[in-house]
Simulated assay, not measured.
Amino acid sequence: MGAIQRGPSGHYTAKIRIKGFPPLSRTFPTRPEAETWLDEQETLIRKRIHEVKKETERHRIATECAPQYRTLGDLMRRYLAVVTPQKRSADQEALRMKGLLKHSLADCPISSLSPQRVAEWRDLRLQSVSSSTVKRDMTLLAHVLKIACDEWGEPFAKNPFRAVRRPREARPRDRRFNAGEEVALLAACDEARAAYLRPIVELAIETAMRQSEIVGLDWSRVNLARRSVHLTMTKNGTSRGVPLSLRAMNVLDQLPGDRLGQVFAGVTAEAVKRAFIRARKRAGMEDFRFHDLRHEATSRLFEKGLTVPEVARITGHKTWTMLERYTHLQLEDVARRLD
């Protein structure tokens, strides 16, 4: 690997030339000194060559064993399999992700996933769905890339879903029952093949609970003697108690079964959603959503004279600003208070 030459001056020059390494040379007054230096340098080079070979082999094994992510859809599918099942809203997110996988953006190579490409997809998506839906889609896909970068070794210098503008938030809905609509909706629920639909709708109207909270309700959390329900896990991650009106008590009391396990056994949020859409259409209420029942229920709590802290404790809202979005009092009731 190396050689030692004696110069005209009588000194000894040690030289090392190895492919892939810069040439080394040094001159010494005696040959033993040159040999010692040469041995030391050759030892260091051999060690470095060994380390490079080991690193190369580790990289080869890692490359062969690791999943190959070529498109955004590849990352989305792994996220759907690994991350989504750990979430409380796993079922809803899985449906959203499967829908997004059908878009052409999922076929975009990771190397071509730029803010410009995301902006084009955003603008196209806004032509068919609401700005709120697009914002939720962008938030989900931004988290897909964050996990891919932080945990799966995908090198994203900048998350393209966070680099583009989010759609402007749509105005909060203020939809409440119009005259005769509650009766029409409940009658349409009675016509449904799903016997659980009317009780679920009535509980939503009486308690202001979310659809997911009603569907996930367990009899062990229902205390009819104390007229209350204890929700252990809610959308904002905290537990809360919900008082039961006489109407809500009557709905729960008339449910069939042995009052063990899930109150609405085997019922999923998606099944309720589809059954409600069909009932809403039969009732002629095309612009009414299940979540509007929460608007209605919250407004009724205020109309009954409850205070902001009392309503917030029932609904689980953290601030008045958040609660105000769900509160649309009937003007006639407000006017009567002014008399």
Rank of each mutant, 00 (worst) to 15 (best):
Q5K: 11
T13E: 06
T13G: 00
R17I: 03
F21K: 10
L24W: 09
L24E: 13
T27C: 02
E35S: 07
E35A: 11
R48P: 00
K54W: 08
K54H: 14
R58Q: 14
K87F: 06
A90W: 13
D91S: 15
Q92V: 09
E93R: 01
R96K: 13
K102L: 05
L113Y: 00
P115I: 09
A119Q: 12
R122F: 01
D123V: 02
S130M: 07
V134R: 03
V134E: 10
H143R: 14
H143T: 05
V144R: 08
G153D: 08
P155T: 12
R165G: 14
E182G: 11
A184H: 08
A184I: 10
A187E: 12
A188S: 09
L197R: 10
R198V: 01
E202A: 12
E206A: 04
M209Y: 03
E213F: 10
L217P: 11
G237C: 07
S245W: 03
A248G: 10
N250T: 15
L260R: 13
R274M: 06
G284R: 07
F288W: 06
H295Q: 08
A297P: 06
S299I: 00
F302D: 08
I314D: 05
W320L: 14
R336W: 03
R336E: 11
L338G: 02
